[in-house]
Amino acid sequence: MENLLVAENVYKRFGNFTALNNVSINIPKESIFGLLGPNGAGKTTFLRIINQITMPDEGEIYLDGRPLQPDDIAHIGYLPEERGLYKSMKVGEQALYLARLKGLSRAEAKERLNYWFKRLDIEAWWDKKIQELSKGMAQKVQFVITVLHRPKLLIFDEPFSGFDPVNANLIKDEILQLKKEGATILFSTHRMESVEELCEYIALIHKSNKLLDGRVSDIKKEYKSNTFEVGLHAQDEETLLRELEEKFQTGPARFKSIQDDLKISIKLKEKESSNDLLQYLLSRARVNHFVEVIPSVNDIFIKTVTQNA
């Protein structure tokens, strides 16, 4: 698949502190890409480099196959983590101003703003000052400003912080809609459930280094350990358990079930297949539950970060 954004061997140092150490990331076109990492890992620095707010010390960034140029800001929409608006300026006025800074004409900006304000049901705010709005309301305005110039690449740094669940869902749907319309989305977040839900690709940055990147399903395949959780019903559970413990590498299982079952997790060796296990179990007991353990992004995140601590 073709990449929209390619970062090659990017380095950035602030004095003695290295913020990015040889980071390379490819973001495929029309995908949702999650940039993960603990606080202070270098995510924001990387996003600022893409937005040309800071320059990398070494390395290249390519957008659509060409090295990044100053004019490319028109193709990028950025919602920074530290975001706000002019307190004493009216909502409509500053939305127009910020849209025109992105290169839209006055009439064009006005038309699109009307569309978006109607769509998010915030038309009544046009003549209000930001200081009269709540934080969540202001966030909606910022979202509109970010996407207004229809950029190819949308960058959201912690987009859901400050939103209540209803509005967070609303924004999530809008993001999915934008993706459907052809935009590529780069996410930076700590909220693993939204990563799990939205992202097709992720990259994990920790202490200035990229530890991991790729398609979420590939990474999960790589991290899965051929382990299955089973729930069994048998006449003599204790004998069965002893038998299983002798034959396989077992551990406790944590799934919930309404049956009073024997719950156990079984790790298979590389050459053993799930079918063999299932056949064996079927001959011994009634199988109520049989699921392969797939690591969550959260698990992968914690595992990778603690391994490299």
Binding site: R48, N51, I53, P70, I73, I76, Y78, L79, P80, E82, R83, G84, L85, Y86, K87, L98, L101, K102, Q142, I145
Partner: peptide, 16 residues
């Protein structure tokens, strides 16, 4: 003001 309002990063992503 632009710093405390946190609007600065939004603006510098459009202009130098």
């Amino acid at each position: 003001e632009e710093k405390t309002n946190r609007i600065i990063e939004i603006i510098v992503s459009s202009v130098k």
